[in-house]
Design a protein around this nucleic acid. Structure first.
Lengths: 131, 131
DNA sequence: CATTTACCTACCTTTCCGATAGGTATATTA
DNA sequence: TAATATACCTATCGGAAAGGTAGGTAAATG
């Protein structure tokens, strides 16, 4: 399942895209428009700035701004950064220990297929599709 | 995303399919072969019997048995019965209250698409594919 | 210098997953 | 008929994680 982190991140990105005419968009405004907690958003955003998806400028008149055109953001990329884990099952998760039943496991291939299906869909859509 | 309930259910179904020559397969044996807790499996199984996916016979010599050929079980059907919730986001869940932001929500269409993509994949595979 | 913003870190509360536990009902076999 | 083996039922529980709150610091602007 997708948590609020990823869902809110998408809404934030779409909101910035819609409001960044030529200046910077304060997260305070985004929070108010979207009806979300500013403090909570503040701890969801960092992975996006650290990976160059958006730029943040401090001080008066500051805020956030996209670094690319909406069309050039794959939703999968946004979610993979903000969501703690996207894999459908634990054994396909990032830091998962190698499952000892792996050799005899009859379902792993099926789960890998599901994982691929999900990621293919996420990568087939862009931020522009949300606007 | 997918919990142990659905994952174990698949392993149980595959195990029964592989061991039900012409008699009934005791859950005790399944638990031992799969390395899972019998008591936990016992509370995962009921939805499968109540919906006619398998039949359970009590008493000595009893156990479980498939009601159809492995090829006729869509994995999606098994998971929708055993998994508490398959929807990728809360607002698409079974008993979810209507979201008040629905009219202005720009992401709901995207999530519905993901939900469809997942279910399409799950319904494209059968129990036979796991054997 | 005052204000506004991003940025950082700790903590907290509730939910729920993943089980454990103890029992009852029902059928078979000796 | 007694003993046994099974399915079936219901309550409880510990730990982890989600989802958020809170309070601060750093930097830029007017």
């Amino acid at each position: 399942m997708i948590s609020t982190r990823g869902r809110y991140a998408l809404r934030v990105m779409a909101d910035i895209a819609s409001n960044q005419e030529d200046g910077y968009v304060p997260m305070k405004d985004v929070a108010k428009r979207q009806g979300l907690s500013l403090k909570y958003l503040e701890q969801i955003i960092p992975p996006l700035t650290k990976n160059g998806m958006i730029v943040g400028v401090q001080g008066k008149g500051g805020g956030y701004r996209l670094t690319k055109k909406p069309k050039d953001y794959r939703i999968g990329d946004i979610l993979r950064l903000t969501e703690k884990e996207l894999a459908p099952v634990g054994c396909l998760a990032k830091g998962a220990p190698v499952c000892e039943r792996r050799p005899q496991c009859k379902t792993i291939g099926f789960w890998e297929g599901l994982n691929d299906a999900v990621n293919d869909y996420l990568d087939s859509k862009t931020l522009e599709d949300l606007l």
